[in-house]
Amino acid sequence: MIRLIDVKKVYDNGTEALKGISFTIEDGDFVFLVGPSGSGKSTIIKLLTGEIVPTAGRVMVNGFSMGRISDKQIPYMRRTIGVIFQDFRLITNKTVWENLSLAMRAVGAGPREIKNRIPYVLELVGLKGKEGSFPDQLSGGEQQRVAIARALVNNPSTIVADEPTGNLDPARSLEIMTLLERINALGTTVVVVTHEKGLVNHFDKRVITINDGMVAGDGMGQYEVVK
């Protein structure tokens, strides 16, 4: 479960990125986080991953309280969420297989576990047979699938994606979003930040709209146009 209670974030340079955000995302939910550029969407994602800490308020992620979490606890909190970025962030000199095994290795998985898990995840994201490819031998959509596979490979309870389709054409974007929907159907909580109105409207999901550091809307279905 993810819960934000009256969260404020002021960056070191004085920018007030969040001005009191509250919402709850239950386990198994699929949520779109939308809003204009600079409204604070990425800031929310960074709070969820522990990259930054809230200036005020509470951020709860899968049982961890982010304001109070100790440095020692942060790795264990991060194992409960898989993160996906617009720019994929794959290791370019490693193959698909190596990119995934690095992520598994990093949390202490053994060789046998890795050998069993990677084919399953690659099959799930539709990249069977690509384990030996390097990222630059793959299309943008395929690269994002590798990133999704990496986010999934350690079986987190939550996936957060910050504009995962920002670099993809509309057809690829729809495929990626459909994949995330499927992953959600398998039981994983999914939080997706996006700009793309058409995409949001295509799925009948909960939409949390952020504007100027505040929640401007929270409801099922349509991308609300912020005035």
Partner: peptide, 9 residues
């Protein structure tokens, strides 16, 4: 990446 997926220091 390792930090992101939860590797300990």
């Amino acid at each position: 990446i390792m930090k992101m997926v939860g590797a300990t220091n």
